[in-house]
């Protein structure tokens, strides 16, 4: 159990970057952007092709994010200049990206990365010298955990990258441009009357969002050791699940808090899915179904709880009133 949960946290943190991207489009811009299913794979494919062709993994990862940025820009242009509705713009871009991704991958739907350098094994020699693995695994063994993780480097690297991405996002959303971006999702007419070019804001905002999604895709590919053309299917639902679960569990009072909630939401989501797959009756193929059910649950439960609470409150008031009437 520990071992599989360790894996869940590991990939949860990587998916958290994708979830932050979805947060930017879905919540900040109020733009349900389905480009994500395509741009995730675009990131993975660009990174993989670069690495296979001898580019340094760090540069490959950066290029992947840039590719995602451009994909988001195009969705934004379709929506603002082409006046195509947001959902349809995303679906069109996602569909187009499927073919483009296959082109990037040189026509093969799967690219292995097994013996290639990655951002994770790049630092491995330095990492081994620190002895953190032995130390942490020693701790685990001493508390009775039998199967210990091979290495902690992925978690450490990912925490650093995710924290940096979170801090940049927090800062960005508080700048003058960031405020205008948030207002574009909140009250577009108003921010236009305050001389902001909402078209440009949307195009750049969607670029930033999909840049993060592609970055996440590039890192997942390097962690998994392969890219699959179909790995992006349902990615938007996973992103939404993370955002909604995170907000429900950890609150959304301020931007700083919400971005943290989204990251934690992505990790919780992975852990729930991992736990669900332990149930004998469920199979790996059921994952998308579980995701969809989780999103529905996270959306509906808070409302049901609020309604029930409100009903109880009213009932209590009525009973109080009755008692008072009897007493008088």
């Amino acid at each position: 159990m520990f071992f599989s949960m360790f894996g869940a946290v590991e990939s949860g943190i990587i998916f958290a970057i994708m979830a932050l991207g979805v947060y930017l489009s879905f919540r900040v811009l109020d733009f349900p952007d389905l480009t994500v299913d395509g741009s995730f794979v675009t990131g993975a494919a660009v990174a993989a092709m670069c690495i296979v062709n001898g580019v340094s993994p760090i540069i490959a990862t950066v290029l992947a994010a840039v590719a995602g940025f451009v994909a988001g820009n195009i969705t934004g242009i379709l929506n603002t200049k082409g006046k195509i509705n947001p959902l349809l713009s995303g679906i069109l871009m996602m569909t187009a990206l499927y073919s483009i991704n296959l082109r990037i991958m040189g026509g093969s739907p799967n690219i292995p990365l097994l013996n290639e350098p990655t951002v994770f094994n790049f630092l491995e020699t330095a990492w081994e010298k620190t002895g953190i693995d032995q130390f942490l695994n020693g701790l685990l063994t001493s508390i009775g955990v039998e199967v210990v993780p091979g290495t902690w480097i992925v978690i450490f690297v990912m925490i650093i990258i995710t924290v940096i991405v979170k801090l940049i996002t927090d800062y960005y959303l508080k700048t003058e441009i960031g405020l205008a971006l948030r207002a574009t999702g909140d009250n577009e007419k108003m921010i236009r009357s305050l001389s902001a070019n909402t078209d440009t804001l949307k195009i750049v905002g969607l670029g930033f969002s999909n840049g993060l999604v592609a970055l996440s895709g590039a890192l997942i590919a390097q962690n998994d050791g392969f890219v699959d053309l179909k790995s992006g299917i349902g990615m938007i639902v996973i992103g939404l699940a993370s955002v909604i679960i995170g907000e429900a569990l950890f609150g959304k009072k301020t931007i700083v808090r919400t971005t943290l909630a989204v990251i934690l939401g992505a990790i919780v989501y992975r852990m729930v899915v991992t736990a669900a797959l332990k149930v004998d009756f469920l199979e790996t193929g059921d994952m998308k179904l579980i995701s969809a059910i989780l999103v529905v649950a996270a959306l509906v439960t808070p409302k049901v709880i609020a309604t029930v609470r409100e009903q109880k409150r009213r009932q209590r008031k009525r009973i109080d009133l009755n008692n008072k009437a009897k007493g008088a």
Partner: peptide
């Protein structure tokens, strides 16, 4: 920021 150029600086 209405009559100024919006930048990447804290609002």
């Amino acid at each position: 920021a209405r009559n100024k150029k919006r930048r990447f600086r804290i609002g």
